[in-house]
Simulated scan of single mutants.
Amino acid sequence: MLSEQPYPVGTRVVVQGKRGPEVAKVRGEATVPEPQARYGAVLRAATPEDLTRWEDLHRQGEDLKWLLRARARERQLPVKLVAVEFTLDESLVTVSYSAEDRIELSSLIGELRKHTRARVNFAAIGPREQAQMIGTLGACGRENCSSTHLQDFAPVSIRMARDQQLPLNPEKLSGPCGRLLCCLQFEHTQYVDLLKDLPRKNAKVCHEGSGACGKVTKLHPLSGTVDVHTDQGMLLGIPASELKRLPDAPAPKPKRDQPEA
């Protein structure tokens, strides 16, 4: 799917977008292998005519966005119109919007028909897609991943933060969109592999060298060590390879004269 011809970083090219041909800028080498690329194939280098047409279509889309916003307010439609975008061949115009409930927007199609003959597509988007289209800065100080290289949004769960031993602070784990950070998924598989060699938290262990025993209180997957709170009240950082794991104590059997909970 990706063009074999190399284009320098910063070059404007015509690519096969999600809905049709678009103008894009080369930002670096492709990170998605060719068989896995769903879209983004470079069709050719953008010509001056392509760039002029793309700029005109962008201005037209911006004008239509503000027009539709005004018409939506007049009709008291509970909707947020995020963007109006044309394909380079002007065969399709996509109106991206967000709304809390299902909403009928067919009344706005007539407004679009007055200004374009392109086929109209209304696309409901979520917070992540809004951040992708608008563009924001992440906690790292760089552009958010969704606006730079992500083609699709993979599911992100709080379990990924737990596996990476991150503090479960919603403010630190959420991106500008208010959802869990997309970057939590990038290294998750590596952390899962590292955790396989570590005892679980709260496990009873003994240090083979000193003989000190205690309970695991914290894991450090990258260094391969764990914090152990010993029976003598000390907190030790010990390599997992030097620990012997003790079997868990069996759960007490319920008394016969008392029913099980």
Rank of each mutant, 00 (worst) to 15 (best):
128 R>A: 04
102 R>C: 03
148 T>R: 11
187 E>A: 12
145 C>F: 04
92 L>I: 12
10 G>A: 05
167 P>E: 03
89 D>N: 14
249 A>E: 12
143 E>N: 11
193 D>S: 14
140 C>W: 09
82 V>L: 14
142 R>S: 07
179 R>S: 01
184 L>P: 00
207 H>T: 03
87 T>I: 10
250 P>E: 10
122 F>R: 08
139 A>W: 05
248 D>N: 07
97 Y>N: 01
211 G>V: 12
142 R>V: 06
239 P>N: 07
10 G>K: 08
98 S>M: 15
103 I>H: 03
141 G>R: 11
241 S>A: 14
164 Q>C: 00
252 P>R: 06
238 I>T: 08
214 G>P: 02
225 T>S: 03
72 A>Q: 01
211 G>I: 11
204 K>R: 15
54 W>K: 03
84 V>R: 00
176 P>W: 07
6 P>I: 09
160 M>F: 01
220 H>N: 13
139 A>P: 02
153 F>D: 01
121 N>R: 15
113 R>S: 08
29 E>S: 07
9 V>I: 15
204 K>W: 05
134 I>Q: 12
151 Q>N: 06
241 S>C: 11
221 P>C: 13
106 S>G: 09
144 N>F: 05
13 V>T: 06
185 Q>L: 13
28 G>P: 01
247 P>M: 04
101 D>K: 15
